[in-house]
Amino acid sequence: MLKIFFGDMEAANYGPSWFKYNYHPEWLKEPFVQQMIEDVDHSRYVDGLVIDSPVLGPIPPERLSGGLKTLIMIYERPDLIFDATSCGDNCAKWLLEIGKQKDVLVNLNYLMTFKAYEPFQIYIENEGKMVSDYSSFLFIAAKYL
């Protein structure tokens, strides 16, 4: 289940820096992580610690985008809370996908759009409510953002 907390949250971690100094090389071998690398960064996992970016060439994991690093942290460390504000709108579908597989709580400080993925299942932690359409999502978010 994807759970979102809107607004300031002391416990929320910054995904890009967490990833940079805490990632495990084996995470990159997981098919789900490789799908996110291809979709969000338009890059391809090669082997070991090498990712092939069409813009930057062969890069180490540290040079993946901030949004993707945060997605990987959310997926791999569901015991922690990350600030998904680092994730652009192109990460929305992956947050929902992660939520289908694991219970994750993320912090959000902007109105990411989930409109294209209705009906969805997002639990709004601030109010203890489940929402499945974007209008309801906005209605609650408006109180906190």
Binding site: P16, V40, D41, H42, V55, L64, S65, G66, G67, L68, S86, C87, G88, D89, N90, C91
Partner: peptide, 9 residues
Amino acid sequence: QGDSASGKT
């Protein structure tokens, strides 16, 4: 702002 992986950082 905008999508992730657009080259901001």
